[in-house]
Amino acid sequence: MSSTSGTIADTKRILVFSTDAISDPGIDLAGSAHMHYPTGVRVLPVPCSSGIKPDWILYALQSGFDGVFIAACGGDCPHLSDCSARTGAIVRRAQELLKEAGISPKRVKMSGICSVCAEAFVAHMENFQKELASLEA
């Protein structure tokens, strides 16, 4: 789906929705610890993963991203005890939208990323890169 060009050619473009209080600090920590992940990973922080609109996910994939990863608050959410369930419902609705638009629902993923989950985040990015590459193989 992406118009592969220049140095980004070997990496997939992934839009990451992070959350201000929980997963964004976890992603910061990956940088602070000098862990590397591909430059095609772009992070857009929002207050909480329960507030992400499914159409934003569709829009990202139509705008040139190969995949959307929701770095959810998970069980650490300071706002909602059922944040994961709500975010999961948003992902399912997004996957329906993707199917209708003829886009593989595998292009959206979610996982709880805690405020110290730097290694988990980097591993998710590496795996998602491979999964997205295999979708086009």
Partner: peptide, 14 residues
């Protein structure tokens, strides 16, 4: 810094 420079120290152009 945390989400660009430090995470991509191996590829200045990208």
């Amino acid at each position: 810094r945390e989400q660009c420079a430090w995470a991509h120290r191996n590829d200045r152009e990208a």
